[in-house]
Amino acid sequence: MSESFDPARWRPAAFLPEQDARDPALIFAIAVLCFLACLTALGVIAGDRAAHGWAGQLTGEATVIVRARGGETPDAAAARAAETLAGVKGVSEARALEKEKAYDLIRPWLGDVSDLEDLPVPRLVAVSLDRKQPATAAGLRQALKAQGLDAVVDDHQIWIKDIRQAAGVVRWTGAALFLLIALAAAAVVAFATRAGLAARRDVVEVLHLTGAEDGQIANLFELRFARIAAISGAFGATAAALAGGLLRLVGGGQGITPALPIAWLDLLAVLPCPLLAAIVAAVAARLTARRLIQDL
């Protein structure tokens, strides 16, 4: 205890005891919340990408069902429809499918009928649309009608709408979860601030009586909890990135399943976590500390 003390090398110590900043329970709780928030973010990103992929595939194509009319054979009608459609602006390719394809589609209902040739089975024309300026279903319908073809155009809009809707639900659910987790983190920090103030009432009293402003004291708690949250956030984010990476590896090139494709780049989404956690904690600690100090 008698080693010399050099005032020139003295650095001001923290007003609040350092050991309070190493509360493992608090660090664990915030880290878990950050982990969950990061997983939510990764889930939303992957879900969004999946929805985009599906919607993109569906937007690029349309299916036209052609029924023969008058004396025309189904094959001839299909061929004429394909030709007509190929000429429409916004269509990059139109191809009449072989009749077997059409049979395959109806076989589940009719059973293995040997003499399908006799049935007036409608034919299908697969249409690939121009990606940039896709033709509308109405445009296709009009062109077919002009040629006197009896046809039904399905541009998959109904599916696309469903997918968009599902993607929207995923996004909003994700946002709500995220908000909920942030609020939970804020509540945890508010609780910890209250406990910290109660445990260090003596320190707060001395600072007060020595002329510290409420804001100065609140600052101590704000900085302390921002730092704890940043560290906890780094733990949680790292864990979430590891979990995401694991899913990616297990799922192979396409992610866990093509349904939830996680890209390596997506893992970067966890990076802002420590900062966000610190901001949430700082605000929560500041508000709590200010209110409690005022009541002292």
């Binding site: 003390f5 005032p7 003295w10 001001p12 110590a13 007003f15 005891p17 350092e18 050991q19 003596d202 320190v203 009293e205 001395v206 009586l209």
Partner: peptide, 10 residues
């Protein structure tokens, strides 16, 4: 009302 976690200097 000394602060026990701080040095005499602090």
């Amino acid at each position: 009302l000394l602060l026990d976690h701080l040095s005499a200097f602090d």
